[in-house]
């Protein structure tokens, strides 16, 4: 196992997340994409902590834990917003929520 293995996995996850965010026409799917991205980040933190620092230093893992907390908060707020949008527009398709359209 080398660092690059993890990095490659992380990159693939990240790309898939980006792909989901860009292409899916459902807000919850987009949220899933975001979760993938966050996971790839956390994986990166953990991997760099494991390979680039002395074994005693685990601050990378702690940052990853913070990331998980943030992801939880983000998911809560995101779903609340989705509910509000659904009430307002009757839909959660992002291309239909275009009040800012010029």
């Amino acid at each position: 196992m080398t660092l690059q293995h993890y990095l490659v996995i992380s990159a693939i996850l990240f790309t898939l997340g980006i792909f989901a965010v860009l292409t899916r026409r459902n807000a919850i799917s987009i949220l899933m994409g975001i979760e993938l991205i966050l996971n790839s980040c956390n994986l990166n933190f953990a991997a760099f902590s494991r390979f680039m620092t002395p074994p005693e230093d685990i601050s990378g893992q702690i940052i990853a834990i913070f990331g998980i907390v943030l992801a939880a908060a983000e998911a809560a707020v995101f779903l609340a917003i989705i509910l509000a949008i659904y009430r307002e527009f009757g839909s959660i398709r992002p291309n239909e929520v275009d009040t800012l359209k010029g």
Binding site: M1, E35, N42, R50, A71
Partner: peptide
């Protein structure tokens, strides 16, 4: 991903991942 954390010897992180996520 949680399994990968285990491979990185981040046991607490893996558990947190499973519980929280």
């Amino acid at each position: 991903v949680a399994g990968l954390y285990v491979f990185l010897q981040a046991d607490f992180l893996a558990a947190t991942q499973v519980i929280v996520y």
